[in-house]
């Protein structure tokens, strides 16, 4: 016992340093997180905006998806009470991770809006989402950009006296889409999607399809009523073979578990679209709400 004590005494600096760093990190993750959300001094990611607008512990009815869902489902136009949990790059892999944490607890209903962008495994993701933070990653490292901005911002405001970003992000909303791209711009975008994503075929969606199966099981375990919506596809662009196969794959997985699927991929005319999958705010989203709201209730 004496030997251990003397060893600890010799390590006191290293131990003290380790404990101090851990305490600093944990306290930061509590204090700074709340400050980030409420101060309005930071540009928030889509999850944080959702959390800011819905601070309640349990989200009873949730409409999850990527930027296509952000552009289409309008909370302010809906009586269904569904929360728009659309996040950019919102994939099924991310949803599976979210349902695995206790950060987000969903009450009774979960509707998942899927389009091709949510299914291809090589699609990028937003590293700032909490579910992209690895277990070993210290909070101060995960939030290093904001901590640095806050630290230098405060320092500068102390030195110069003028305020630092006081609440300039308070009114921040998720990003919407207006009007529409020209045909050439749309064609360029589609060509790029073809080259980077669709060329990987349905096999390139393996992980997300596996996540769909896992999400179904997670919802069954938690007693959440799950439904799936195939998000709209701009009719001016002909659906390639891989997209048709992908939609069938989704439908068959859902059918195996008795999950209701609402296929809206061919429901809307070209004027509703900003580009291939995003609805424009001033018209397309209204059309989408006319169709989706009755179904949601």
């Amino acid at each position: 016992m004496k030997k251990v004590l003397s060893f600890l005494k010799r390590c006191r600096f290293l131990l003290f340093l380790l404990i101090a760093l851990l305490l600093l990190d944990v306290s930061l993750s509590v204090v700074f997180d709340r400050y980030t959300m409420t101060s309005g001094n930071f540009s928030l990611n889509d999850y944080e905006i959702t959390r800011r607008d819905h601070p309640e512990e349990i989200w009873d009815k949730v409409f999850y998806g990527n930027s296509a869902v952000i552009s289409a489902y309008r909370e302010d136009l809906s009586d269904s009470g569904y929360i728009n949990f659309g996040v950019d790059y919102g994939s099924l892999i991310s949803l599976q991770t979210i349902l695995g944490t206790d950060e987000v607890s969903i009450g009774s209903n979960l509707v998942v809006g899927l389009n091709w962008a949510a299914m291809f495994d090589n699609m990028e993701t937003n590293p700032n989402y909490f579910w992209n933070r690895s277990f070993l990653e210290p909070y101060s490292y995960f939030q290093r950009d904001r901590l640095y901005a806050a630290f230098t911002g405060k320092l500068k405001s102390m030195a110069t006296g003028d305020p630092w970003a006081e609440g300039s992000y308070r009114e921040q909303t998720k990003s919407y889409y207006y009007a529409a791209l020209s045909d050439e711009e749309l064609a360029d975008k589609v060509a790029e999607y073809e080259k980077r994503y669709w060329s990987t075929g349905v096999e390139g969606c393996g992980d997300n399809l596996a996540s769909l199966q896992r999400v179904i099981e997670q919802c069954q375990e938690k007693g959440i009523h799950l439904r799936v919506v195939l998000m709209p596809w701009n009719p001016t662009i002909e659906k390639p073979e891989v997209i048709l196969e992908l939609n069938d794959a989704i439908k068959s997985i859902c059918a195996d578990s008795g999950i209701e699927v609402l296929d809206l991929s061919d429901t809307f005319e070209a004027d509703c679209f900003y580009d291939l999958g995003h609805m424009n705010y001033e018209y397309g989203s209204h059309r989408f709400m006319e169709v989706i709201d009755p179904w949601l209730q």
């Binding site: 060893f7 010799r10 390590c11 600096f13 290293l14 340093l17």
Partner: peptide, 10 residues
């Protein structure tokens, strides 16, 4: 050693 680790950390 613990001492050298402490020195290098500092």
């Amino acid at each position: 050693s613990v001492e050298s680790a402490t020195y290098f950390t500092k």
